[in-house]
């Protein structure tokens, strides 16, 4: 799939979550998403960036603007080298949390996007990909 722009943001501390949100907003505007769709993907990016920091021990996100036969979209790939998630299905359920959040992070982020995929291996890390199309 042709990528027309790529950005990378490291997630090491709490301020970086804010930076991920801002970068996501900038690119969402560039893609031309509606205000509601911008808000949805920025919120999802905030949830996932916090997960990367809190559960993955930090990592990075790659933000890409996609162009598929004239249809534009924004894809975010969050990756960490943390403990991984043993039971993904359980982690996607609302209310499930091992940390201090409300347990809406993963499942919530999934509902806010058009595409969602997750891969995780205990001990090796987690990779979450989300996309929102115009």
């Amino acid at each position: 799939m042709p990528t027309t722009k790529t950005e990378r943001v490291e997630i090491r501390q709490s301020d970086d979550v804010v930076r991920v949100r801002q970068q996501t907003r900038t690119l969402a505007v560039e893609v031309g998403l509606s205000l509601v769709d911008q808000t949805k993907i920025v919120t999802a990016s905030s949830e996932l960036a916090r997960n990367t920091l809190d559960y993955g021990g930090g990592g990075e996100v790659v933000l890409e603007i996609l162009d598929q036969a004239g249809r534009r979209g924004l894809r975010l790939t969050f990756e960490d080298r943390g403990a991984g998630i043993p039971d993904i299905e359980q982690a996607l359920k609302d209310g499930f949390t091992t940390g201090k959040g409300m347990g809406l992070g993963l499942g919530g982020a999934k509902r806010l996007c058009n595409e969602f995929s997750i891969a995780s291996k205990p001990g090796e890390g987690t990779k979450v990909i989300i996309a929102r199309w115009k």
């Binding site: 509601v36 808000t39 949805k40 949830e47 499942g107 919530g108 509902r111 806010l112």
Partner: peptide, 13 residues
């Protein structure tokens, strides 16, 4: 804001 309200509901809050 409206967009925030819509997103929160979708998020499940």
């Amino acid at each position: 804001r409206p967009a925030v309200a819509i997103t929160l509901v979708e998020l499940g809050l």
